[in-house]
Every structure is written in C-alpha cells, then in structure tokens.
Design a protein around this nucleic acid. Structure first.
Lengths: 209, 209, 209, 209
DNA sequence: AATGAATGAGCCTTCATTCAT
DNA sequence: GATGAATGAAGGCTCATTCAT
C-alpha cells in the first residue's frame, strides 16, 4: 500500500521535528508508523531521502499564501503571522517546518546546501524584498539584510527556543491565543524600527544609538 | 599532567560547539586532544560531565562584565555588544558558548534543566530587568518578556544561523568589523522600538500595528 | 530463521553454565552460535533477557516429573535422582540448570530475586513438603528447613563442586553409572537420618549427637 | 608503609569474598583501602597475586585447630563446628575463606589448581581420614568419599547459598545462635547416617534405600 | 615508598542498512 | 509490495595495567 509511505512521512515529520535529523532513528520512525524496520529503505532508499521527502512535504508555503498586491507593511505583518501560525499550530504537520529548519541551522545535515538553496533562500529573499521596500533600500544592501535578519530572528526564536521559553516563562504555552499576541508584538516591534529606518534615510530626526 | 585535561576541554569545546552534545563523539574529542579514548572517563567520569565542564568554562560572563551603574539604555547596548563579541570572536574559546546553547535549545541534553536554570536563566533575567526599566514595566510583565525575547532573538540568530547566513549572504564573515556593525544594528533596531513602547505607555501617540 | 535464536540459546546455555552471567560475554556467545555480535540484541533485547530465556529453557521440571501419589520416602528418592540426572546427563542442555543456579547463588545477578522466587523457591518448597511428611513436622518448622537444606546441599554440591571433585577424586566422571551411585548414596544417607528424626519425635530411643 | 599493604589485603578479602575474583575490581579494592589505584600493582604485581595473598591470609586452618587425639566422632563434630564458625562469624576476616572457596568452585580462576591442591585438598583429605575411621573404610574408598562429600556439602551450602537462604527463609540470619543450631543439626544428621553405615558393614540390620 | 596520569583492549549496546523470502 | 532476520561499524564506558615522577 502507498498508505505505508504516507504514514512513514507522517511519523518521520514528528520525529525529525522533535529530534532533528541526526538524533532521529529509523527504528523510532518505523515503530510510530506501525511499519517494518526495513520500510524506510524500501520506500525511500535511505534515511536521508526520507528526510528530504519530509522537508518537501512540510515546505508548502509558509509565506507563499501572502498576497503580493498589498502594501509592504501589510505584507510583512502577514508574513510574520503566517510564519508563526505555521510554526505553532498549523492544522497539518504542526510545527514541522520551522523546527526542522531550526535543527538544520544548528546541526547541518548532508542535505544542508540543498535545503538552504531551495527552501530557506527563496523565503528569505522574498522577505528581504518586502523589507527593502519598507526601508527604501535595495534587497542586497547590508541594512536591508540586517533588518531582515532582525525580523526573521524574532520569529525563529520561538521555533528554536520553545523548551527554554517554557522553562523560563511559567504558564507559557504555544496556543492560538499566544501565537496571536506574539505575532502582534513582533510585527509592532519590527515595523516601529523599520519605519524609523526609512525616516532616517530622509533625514528628519535622529533615532540613533 | 593537567595539560591533558585542558586539551580535552579545548577539543571538546570545539566539537560540542560544532556538532552538539548528541552528535559529538568521545573518540573524536580524544583524537583531537591527542589523548587516549579512556582519557575522558579518567578526567571527567563520562561524556556528560565533560560537557558540563566545557559549559562552565565557556560561560564566564557574557554579560557579567557590563556595569550596573550606567543607565538602562547603555546597559542594553553594552550587553548586546558583549554577547555578540563573546559569540564571534572572543579571544578564547571563540563562539563556544552560544553555539552550544543553540544546540541545547534545539536538542535538549540530559543536563538541559541545569543549563537553563544555572546559565541561561540568570542572564535572561538580568536582560528582562534592564528592558523592564527601559519600557517602564516590571520584569515579569508579558510585554517585558516579549521585548526581551525580541532582543535576545536577534543576537542568538547569529549563533544559530551562521552556516545559513554564510551561504545566503555572499562575503559575510564573522570578524571584528562585522560584529561591530551587527551589534550597532541590533541595539539601534531594538532601542528604537523599546523607547516607542515606553512612550506608548504614557499615551502621546500611537505606534501601533 | 528462528534457527539463529535457538543456536543463541544453546550457546548461551553453555557459556552461562560455564562462566556465569557476569563473566560470560555476548561476543563469546555469538561466536559459538555462529551469529553476528548484534544477534543477541535483535533476538532478545539485551544480555539479561537472553539469560532469562536460557533459564526458562533450562528449568523444565527437575522435580516436576516426580509423581505426588507415591509415599514421601519414594518421592524424596525420586526427586534426588531426578535432580542429579538433570544436573549431570540430561539428554538436552546437560547440566545447565544447576550450574547456572550455582553461579546465581554465589554471584547474584540483576535477576536474582526473580530467579529465586520463580525457579528455586517452588522446588525448594515442594522438597520441604515431602521432608516435612517424612519427619512428621510442618514445612515451615526449623527442623524441616534444616533437613531440606541437608538434602539439597548434597545434590547441589555436585553441581557446584564438579571441577574440584574432578581434581581431588582421580578417575571421577559424571557419567550415568556415577550419577546412579551418587543418587543412591544421597538418598540412603538422607533417609537414614530423616527416619531417625521421625523416631526421635515419638521418643523411643535417642540417636542424638 | 607496610600498612597500605595490610589495608589492601583487608579490603581485598571483603571484596573477593563478596564478588569473587572475576567480578571484583582493583578500583573498588583500592578505594576501600584508601589507597591509590596503582597500589595493587605496586605491592602485589597484579590482581592475581593479591588474590593469592588474600587466600593465604584466610586459610589459617579451619580444621587445623581440631585436636587429633580425640575420637573420630568428636573430631567430626569439632570440624563441622569449626568450619561453620569460620564461615560465619570468625573474629577476623569473617567468612572470607569459605565464600572465596565457593566462588572458586563455581567459577575457577587462573589459580584454581594451586588453590585446590594447597588449600582445599589437605582439608578434604583430613576429613576423609576421620570419616573413614568412623565408617570403618579406607580414606580412598568410594563410600568414604561419598560420605565426606555429604558432610562437606552441608557445610558449604551455607557459604554458597546465604543470599538464597535469606530470601527463602524469612527471619534467617547468620548469627552465633544460628550457627550453633546449624552445626548441631549437620553433626547429628551426618553422624546418624555414618554410624548406620558402619553398622551396615558388620551386617546386623538393613538400613535400606 | 608511592602516586597521579595515561593506556588500549574489551565490554554491552545501538545504529542504518541489506538480504532472502 | 513488504518483511523478518541478520549484519558490521561505531557508540560510550570500564577494566587491569603501566609509566614517569
């Protein structure tokens, strides 16, 4: 049955999201999928190919759904919200994508280069474009890059640091309500500074350090 | 000689920073240290104790050097700079601390709780205190926490994401010049919004989303 | 094939009987079984589970075959004979059971308690019951216990002490002939005293020390 | 200091008696003796030589103290009592000798042959002599050997099986009172049958099986 | 007379993978 | 289309031992 293949991806998504590529075990994945231990090799060839399959499955447009016709400020807010939604409580595959990417950043796998080029890069480039328009600088400018980093950093933080946050912030939980509050904060925090950066370029008033 | 012990910590620091606790191997560490495979057991008992020794060695006050007498804005800038310095180009153990913490966040180890409570927690609390004073809210307030997260997220991003950044940003390198530019950007980006948060509390004008 | 599993138990029985749990090595067992080093883990989980499997295999009724309808004297003789047979020249797994139990007594393993409760205990209790009937005392009485110990001690001696006996008694060999002679001696030696104990309880004449 | 050497033997005696040669570790012994880990090799050469030193120390005549002038029955009783005393509650080195011998029987060490020839053999031979006189047969006769085995088996049982006995016999403890009761039982149990064996040789009455 | 440091062989176990069915 | 069995490399760790001091 192809059902086994699907169950394998489902189980692998959970395991890779939780433990990362290196610490995830084929045994665990097969067990959760109710499949034989040889199933991974049969359906995907090896552990790495399964990992790629999971990533392909999980990518699906964190930010792609954001329309391009609206203004850059609204696009940014929508992208931040979309990313956090995707991270925390997507209906399907909740949180896979960002948690896997978090692992990939910290402990690169054999497919690191492909993942960066095909998955992370495009989304980062789009974000740079939007931010460039907000601050009035080209996407490749250092200021644009630094600003894009600042925005994406705040989002990723909640993917990377969930266990730490939960330990340091009693009562914290990544539910729908929380995600909304976090998204609003990040958007507000970022836009405030980005607008100031634009104003600083048409010198009105200093907001320097 | 205690020299072997020191070489072991040195080698382990590099390996743990690069691969994280789980993927680091005692064999690799001993080989790099030019020591026997049993040296870790002799000097530290087991892999975990060596890991803790490395963390203890690497902690040494990312932010502790920042004086407490200066104003909160200056403290924040100094802390951001100190963290980035520590991360990127500390004279000794370059980058260990934050890279290890990055691994710890993404893939918690058996000593996760201790590390969070004894290492991450205190520094995070100090940061919350400073930010609370800037925005005029108590350290435990949700707004203070979210703001602290936004600041620390931007710093940590460069520890987590170095491999990705280097791939996406041609010519990027974590040298002294770059660190200074990044620090200045993060400080500027954050202070701009933090000050706006304070102003928003004494309602003058909306900077909302 | 389940053949490997069987060969593993066979080899493990020999090795555990010879060296005991602690000194037996998985490598040795796998080598004798013509199996890979990982075979034990695959078929049994770990060394301890293999050990339990061997014990389960070897238990099989040293004394269970003795019918309960015959008189207690005949039961005792039959039990002694059965135990010695089982120990020395059982068709299958010759001598495993008692030699493993000997190791277990002298150097308790992690499963000591289970082995005593589930394997040794029941057989010892049955023996106490029979001896209690012979000497006319309840099974829990100290005299009954001491007498049961004296009987079982004589049997076990040949399991424990085989190497020593073979060195001290030139020409000794644990063959069918010898076992018969030993069984007859132990039965005679024991019954003689047990009957005297019964007589002593209906005071006729002292046979004391 | 020679004091270290003595403490080493003292500690080694306890450890070897408890765990046997194979499972005892040099580390444990040195730690208990408050000595350096290299102390064993310095003072004794290696683990085996230390083991031999402990055995030499522990031998000291379980039965040698029994006078030879008294009648064989009295000698036997005295020997049984002496062995049990030595085993359970000797003032010095309590229980070393028999527990170590128990290990040696079940799991022969590299010095097995020497131990049997020099330590076990002589005592066994003396016992055979005494029993031979009781039953009126030469020491080398099969009946004499079997009878000697029956006696020594009962004594050794309490050295081998202490952990099992303690589990199967609630309230059992190897104190002075218990040792006396056990010694009296074994002597009574054995002498009763031995005397019957002598009578059987001068045919008066059957003591059949 | 004694020790802290270091060694290398070997322990049990776990891993991703392969093969015959 | 799928699997149970088996593999060999490598994992962390413990051991008795040795060496320079």
């Amino acid at each position: 049955m192809a059902a086994t293949r699907a169950r394998l991806i489902e189980a692998a998504g959970e395991v890779f999201a939780e433990h990362g590529y290196h610490s995830a075990t084929v045994r665990d994945i097969c067990a959760r999928a109710g499949a034989n231990i040889a199933a991974v090799n049969y359906h995907f060839g090896d552990k790495t190919e399964l990992y790629l399959a999971v990533i392909r499955e999980s990518v699906c447009s964190a930010t792609d759904l954001v329309p391009e016709e609206i203004g850059p400020d609204e696009q940014l807010v929508a992208m931040i919200t979309a990313m956090l939604r995707k991270m925390g409580l997507a209906a399907e595959h909740p949180g896979w994508h960002f948690r896997i990417m978090a692992h990939e950043m910290v402990a690169p796998t054999p497919v690191f280069a492909r993942v960066v080029d095909e998955v992370i890069g495009p989304q980062y480039n789009r974000l740079r474009g939007v931010i460039g328009r907000i601050i009035g600088l080209p996407p490749g400018h250092e200021q644009t890059r630094l600003a894009a980093n600042s925005v994406v950093a705040q989002v990723i933080f909640y993917a990377h640091g969930r266990p730490v946050i939960e330990r340091l912030w009693p009562g914290f939980a990544m539910n729908k309500r929380t995600v909304t509050r976090i998204a609003r904060h990040i958007a507000s925090f970022s836009l405030c500074s980005l607008r100031a950066m634009r104003r600083a370029r048409r010198p009105l008033k200093e907001t320097t350090l």
